[in-house]
């Protein structure tokens, strides 16, 4: 207890009296953690980007003209109740016509063709969005439901199928790449932290020898460095939070606009996973610095 108290005192003294070395070490820690958090942010953004593309993919189901609203609304209710479906929009025949004319308002030929037909060629339409691209197959199967399956004139999905496959392949490649990148970054981070601790202990090598010569036990020499490492990790994590979270919050609106999403969920991702993300980073850093300083010290403790 007395040893812990004293070594803590020495650790604080060391930090203060070697303030530039301390600041440099903390700075290295902060930069390392920030890099890791940029990686985490990229992961969230990739998800958002993929989500953004997936959201734009939906299945349009066109019903035969003259299909009763009962069947249409029944189909809408049924589809909306499926857990794989995130939304079903009903577009009436009139609305479909309006949208069509609107979309082609500068195209004389199409407008003329519509006039030639003389009546509304559109039946009701349901636009179904899936929660997940994997769910499209299930939804397509669900459309064969006997209560409304026969009223369906057509569904346009065939195009999307290829797009979805490509997105899936792309997602997998991105995630694979991100994993490799994360691995490389983690390795670099470990090396940087190891080295900055080695440097810090190297600068203290003579003092370590002197401590041993005046009768300090190995633990008495080691503890201040271990306490310093834990304190540095703590301060560095706190500083990283102070940098990363406000930046994420500030950038979120622009990012949301860029990805055409209402909400990317970056800051809420950090909030919800704060314990895991930052607690994990603190623990990893602290454990790493304890191991690093113990290893680096062993060389100088043999006096």
């Amino acid at each position: 207890m007395r040893t812990l108290h004293r070594t803590t005192k020495f650790a604080l003294q060391n930090i203060w009296r070697n303030i530039w070395l301390s600041l440099a070490t903390v700075l290295v820690f902060v930069l390392t953690l920030t890099t890791i958090n940029i990686l985490i942010t990229l992961h969230v953004l990739t998800d958002a980007a993929i989500q953004s593309i997936e959201d734009q993919i939906d299945i349009s189901v066109y019903f035969k003209k003259g299909t009763s609203e009962d069947i249409l609304f029944g189909a809408q209710d049924y589809l909306a109740s499926l857990s794989q479906v995130s939304g079903v929009e009903y577009v009436s025949g009139e609305e479909a016509l309006r949208r069509f004319s609107e979309r082609h308002r500068y195209d004389e030929r199409i407008l003329q063709a519509l006039e030639v037909v003389g009546q509304n060629p559109f039946g009701g339409e349901l636009i179904i969005s899936a929660r997940n691209t994997d769910d499209f197959a299930f939804i397509l199967e669900a459309l064969k439901n006997p209560t409304f399956g026969s009223a369906i004139e057509s569904q346009d999905f065939s195009d999307h199928e290829r797009v979805i496959q490509r997105i899936d392949a792309f997602t997998q490649r991105v995630q694979f790449f991100a994993l490799i990148l994360a691995g490389i970054f983690a390795l670099i981070a470990v090396l940087i932290v190891l080295n900055s601790i080695r440097v810090s202990i190297y600068t203290h090598r003579e003092e370590i020898g002197i401590m041993k010569l005046v009768g300090a036990s190995n633990n008495f020499v080691r503890l201040p460095f271990i306490i310093e490492g834990i304190l540095f990790s703590f301060v560095a994590t706190a500083m990283t939070i102070a940098i990363v979270y406000p930046t994420a919050t500030a950038m979120e609106p622009q990012l949301a606009q860029f990805f055409e999403q209402q909400n990317i969920g970056l800051s809420s991702y950090y909030l919800q996973n704060a314990y895991w993300i930052f607690g994990g980073q603190f623990l990893a850093l602290a454990i790493l610095s304890i191991i690093a300083s113990s290893l680096a010290l062993n060389r100088y403790l043999r006096v």
Partner: peptide, 13 residues
């Protein structure tokens, strides 16, 4: 007790 030519004091104390 040990005393050395180069004193061996801790510089930051």
């Amino acid at each position: 007790g040990v005393v050395y030519q180069d004193f061996k004091l801790l510089p930051k104390k």
